[in-house]
Design a protein around this nucleic acid. Structure first.
Length: 309
RNA sequence: GGGCAGGUAGCUCAGUCGGUAGAGCAAUGGACUGAAAAUCCAUGUGUCGGGGGUUCAAUUCCCUCCCUGCCCA
């Protein structure tokens, strides 16, 4: 039988979770979340996790699956998600992948080079960066892999660091590794993108942030810090958390923190839109104020019924 | 009704001793192949409140009108 997977992507606050949930109930299937922050336990309010009713009514993979101390990344997501997809297919279920982490979705669909981060190399490079600065690392990359260097700026140190890391692990320039990489797959992905008029999306974001505060975001963050989690954890380098942490450290006012969360979420949504726009396989479904999650999930359901006909 | 202070980019303002203007914030476009809610790049034409006058030239000076705020009646 065909190996189908439905993907529901889109910017934050677009209502993806509702659509995925409604569709999952209709299809009696499970959801594979593609969200780099919702994997973490304790990041509930700020990460805008689906409500508990959803989580108990439909199985959601990759939500509350990790502790804040555990690193996770797109490569791990690819491997583990493919495994879950296999299992679901063998049970005759159509997996619904839902999330806004573009890199995770790309890794799942196209694969990602199979070179895991090496912590010792990484910390060595970080030390080098602290000592010599961004320019020196960039110059180093230029001499090793001018092609890759040309595709990034010296200040984008994360990409420079990763390119160097791959070189030190494999002995090959990352540009070469990328150009020769290809992962085959039997899976047929159906991609949908949820979108709104920008203005409406932004007001949804602004309102959602207000609701997060009412729901106790400050207390949630305080609790995480009280549990001893260091603010430097990647999971806490997240919109909604970093700003509240800054407030709790008396660096900014609560009012300012809220305004920053709203703005940073808007910026984030824009970046997601930029990312997904580049994917020609996505079929965009525009939400209207008068519409509902079931309208959209109904459309997708109709597609599925007609699939292959 | 009178006095004072203002009306300049979406917002808050700066500025032009007359040669059509610039910051912060917001906003917009983009990059991205194992940290991705991360990280990074690029983008500022706006009847300088309306009208008139002086001038080669007015957003800048003068007159007048409108609007906003404060004070006095």
């Amino acid at each position: 039988m065909e190996r189908r997977v439905i993907i529901i992507a889109g910017p934050t606050a677009s209502g993806k979770s509702d659509i995925a949930f409604t569709l999952a109930k209709t299809l009696s299937t499970e959801i594979i979340s593609a969200d780099s922050r919702q994997i973490y336990r304790k990041l509930d309010i700020g990460a805008a996790k689906p409500p508990d009713e959803y989580l108990t009514a439909v199985r959601h993979h990759f939500i509350n699956s990790h502790d804040l101390n555990q690193p996770f990344d797109a490569g791990a997501f690819e491997v583990e998600a493919l495994k879950i997809i296999d299992e679901m297919h063998s049970k005759g279920l159509i997996p619904i992948v839902c999330g806004g982490s573009g890199l995770y979705i790309r890794a799942l669909i196209n694969g990602i080079i199979d070179i895991a981060p090496d912590e010792s190399i990484r910390s060595e490079l970080k030390a080098k960066r602290d000592e010599l600065g961004d320019e020196a690392l960039y110059d180093l990359l230029k001499s090793i892999d001018p092609l890759a260097a040309a595709s990034m700026t010296s200040r984008n140190y994360k990409r420079v660091l990763r390119a160097l890391e791959v070189y030190y692990i494999t002995g090959k320039p990352i540009s070469e590794v990328h150009s020769t990489f290809q992962r085959g797959s039997e899976i047929e992905f159906m991609e949908y993108g949820i979108t709104w008029d920008r203005e409406i999306l932004y007001s949804r974001i602004n309102e959602r942030v207000e609701r997060m505060l009412e729901a106790g975001l400050v207390q949630e963050v305080q609790g995480i810090l009280d549990d001893g989690y260091p603010p430097a954890l990647n999971g806490l380098n997240t919109v909604g958390y970093k700003e509240i942490i800054s407030y709790l450290y008396n660096e900014i006012s609560l009012e300012r923190a809220v305004a920053l969360i709203q703005r940073n979420t808007r910026h984030y949504a824009k970046r997601q839109l930029t990312w997904f726009k580049k994917d020609p396989a996505i079929q965009w479904l525009k939400m209207e104020l008068s519409g509902s999650a079931s309208d959209i999930s109904g459309k997708i359901y109709a597609d599925i019924v007609n699939w292959g006909r």
